[in-house]
Design a protein around this nucleic acid. Structure first.
Lengths: 238, 238
DNA sequence: GCAAAAGTGTTGACTATACACCCATGC
DNA sequence: GCATGGGTGTATAGTCAACACTTTTGC
């Protein structure tokens, strides 16, 4: 490799964030509204430049804190998706963007404290056409999260520190868009050592009525063996 | 986002390639030997700068063709791994690298036609300490490929156009480092529609002796439902 | 015949699914 | 009491791992 610092046209390196959360039983995404061309009036994923002294991961955490006003982003799940580098993806200049998916439990009210326009939570299926290639990034994020639910313990990242198994099941059902059998889901989760840990003696009413549900914390496990497969879209013939 | 083309220090954007193949029943990696500081004398992953008019994927294909002299890289599997962007990863300047994993069947003799030093196939477990953070990139590539073998049809990317089930099984065993039961492996593969397709009437002797094995082609399927899980390292207690 | 490699059969254990059923709480 | 949501039991079908066995080839 031949390194010459000024031999090549400079690239701008940015991060784009697909910040996902669950609210009112639906998947929501954090989006900003663009005020300027190009794509004025369109929504876009939050993001920004990577600073000279920080990694893409650090930049993603910083941008997320700026957009949401959430300084305590220690417990959130931040995952690098992939890098989008097609030459024409930003009409103004050459921008290579490292995309991240971030998962939050209870959505904090975002106050547009950063340099971007105010960020708002938008239902996933009402995002409309986004700016740049952000539609694709968002779709990739959703697919990645859905796939990781099958063989990792990632789903607890959408839950508050203490949660019921019914809430955890709703997370799966919302992200996958399918209904699951409650007794079987329960057994599957409890049979995986380290997925969840019981909070002794604690219980909570969920719907105002019914038996109070036992509370659980996220356990130390990260992988799910055997996996919890979502019902296959295509019925497998015998 | 505030775009100012010259407001930020330029980043160099490169690609690094973990090119994997199987030879003599062992996993091999394509590596170059560095002649200059830093890391002179160390081996490194092939790679190079992304040109202003190409995407990272295009750059990866171009570099691969240059290093291996293989112009027919249409059938190879090229997969983006992740992007490595830690500020200190190259001591000379700020380099953000998009890493790829590439899978090749029969290894072509690489002739160092590119700008890099000659590239050579090195057994995976004899790579020694690599330059920069390439040890980590290589380990990430191996882990990713191993994981993808469980739930995708990726393994055929290591096979020639026509192959036997025994050869396919060797691919799994070599990448995972575990032995598999032949009858069960066979059933599993054949039970997955579209994984492999029989080549009618064709057969080949593998070890010089024994019954000639039927030949198969890679099928149209990409996903594996249900997955083919590698034996879990930790025994699951009852 | 014998060794080697491919391919088939079988069995027992485990797992998943689809339910029916019981428990605790608010109204 | 009854609706609602949490939690348990179970029977059946399906799947998987282990291993015995048959087939086809070269020597």
């Amino acid at each position: 490799m031949d390194y010459d610092k000024y031999a090549h046209e400079p690239f701008a390196v940015t991060v784009d964030l697909a910040v996902l959360t669950l609210a009112e039983g639906a998947l929501h995404v954090l989006l900003i509204e663009r005020g300027q061309e190009p794509y004025a009036g369109h929504r876009a994923l939050p993001g920004g430049f990577v600073h000279p002294d920080e990694s893409a991961e650090t930049a993603a955490r910083r941008e997320l804190a700026e957009e949401t006003g959430l300084s305590d982003v220690s417990g959130l799940h931040l995952e690098q998706l992939r890098t989008y580098s097609e030459p024409g993806r930003d009409p103004r200049m050459r921008v290579v963007s490292v995309a991240f998916a971030a998962l939050l439990p209870d959505p904090p009210e975002p106050h547009g404290g950063g340099d971007a326009a105010e960020a708002r939570w938008i239902p996933y299926d009402r995002t409309g056409p986004l700016a740049f290639d952000h539609d694709r990034i968002l779709a990739d994020a959703h697919e990645r999260v859905g796939a990781k639910f099958e063989y990792t313990c990632l789903a607890t990242a959408f839950c508050p520190p203490e949660f019921t198994l019914g809430e955890l099941q709703q997370v799966y059902e919302t992200v996958w868009g399918t209904a699951l059998d409650r007794p079987n889901f329960r057994r599957k989760v409890l049979a995986t050592p380290g997925f969840v840990e019981a909070v002794p003696g604690a219980a909570r009413l969920t719907g105002g009525r019914g038996k109070p549900a036992a509370l659980y914390r996220a356990g130390p496990a990260t992988a799910l063996h055997p996996p919890l497969l979502r019902p296959s879209p295509e019925g497998r013939p015998a």
